[in-house]
């Protein structure tokens, strides 16, 4: 859907041009346009608001410092988001939380397109529950799942971001998806029992 999304539009080229001249006012305008959206990205990636603030700070400084590498061929928002994501991944790696390579071998043999669950119709995905359960996934699967579902990257892009193979990304996602389904189903049964 075209413009029902919030306006993370490519703000005036003019603003960016002025940011290049280190115009603080223009930089603040750009910051204000994107800060909230990017903050949500960071919080999802890092699961922690304090870390998210630090990383977001670094990412914006980073972005303004290397703004000259931005070409106007892509939306500014996606360029910025990529910087934010990379910063998040680095932070996670620093904390040694992200260890996809360990699981990689085990999972790599899964078929590219695992047929979707046969009982798909039985489950009603709900955004808040998915979001909550996602945080309980093993770190590797969680990150892939988040990048794929919430940040809108495809598996080729995820592979590049995380420096893994596309197959691994797909496998991690299908593992995450399966686990999410189980968690939601379980939640449902628990609810039934309570009732």
């Amino acid at each position: 859907m075209s413009a029902l999304e919030p306006i993370t539009a490519d703000i005036h080229r003019y603003l960016i041009e002025r940011c290049l001249e280190n115009d603080r006012k223009a930089q603040f305008q750009i910051y204000k346009l994107y800060a909230d959206a990017m903050y949500n990205v960071c919080c999802r990636m890092l699961k922690n608001e304090a870390d998210a603030q630090d990383v977001l700070q670094e990412a914006f400084v980073d972005a303004f410092t290397k703004l000259h590498t931005f070409r106007f061929d892509a939306p500014f928002g996606s360029w910025l988001k990529r910087i934010v994501i990379n910063r998040c991944v680095n932070a996670l790696k620093k904390r040694k939380l992200l260890t996809i390579h360990v699981e990689e071998k085990k999972l790599a043999h899964l078929p590219d397109d695992e047929p979707a669950d046969m009982h798909e119709d039985e489950i009603e995905w709900e955004i808040s529950k998915v979001r909550r359960c996602m945080d309980k996934l093993p770190e590797g699967a969680r990150i892939v799942c988040n990048l794929y579902l919430f940040e809108g990257y495809d598996h080729a892009e995820i592979a590049e971001i995380l420096n893994i193979t596309e197959a691994t990304s797909k496998a991690q996602y299908s593992k995450a998806r399966k686990r999410l389904r189980e968690m939601l189903m379980q939640e449902k049964t628990t609810l039934w029992k309570i009732n």
Binding site: F28, Y31, Q53, Q57, V61, I127, R177
Partner: peptide, 25 residues
């Protein structure tokens, strides 16, 4: 699942970057 998330993402993107962050930047 992906379709649902794309459709409803805005509902949960509710956090706001803290005010002081810009000053730090």
């Amino acid at each position: 699942l992906k379709k649902m998330v794309q459709l409803h993402q805005q509902e949960i993107d509710t956090l706001q970057a803290p005010e002081f962050l810009w000053e730090r930047i």
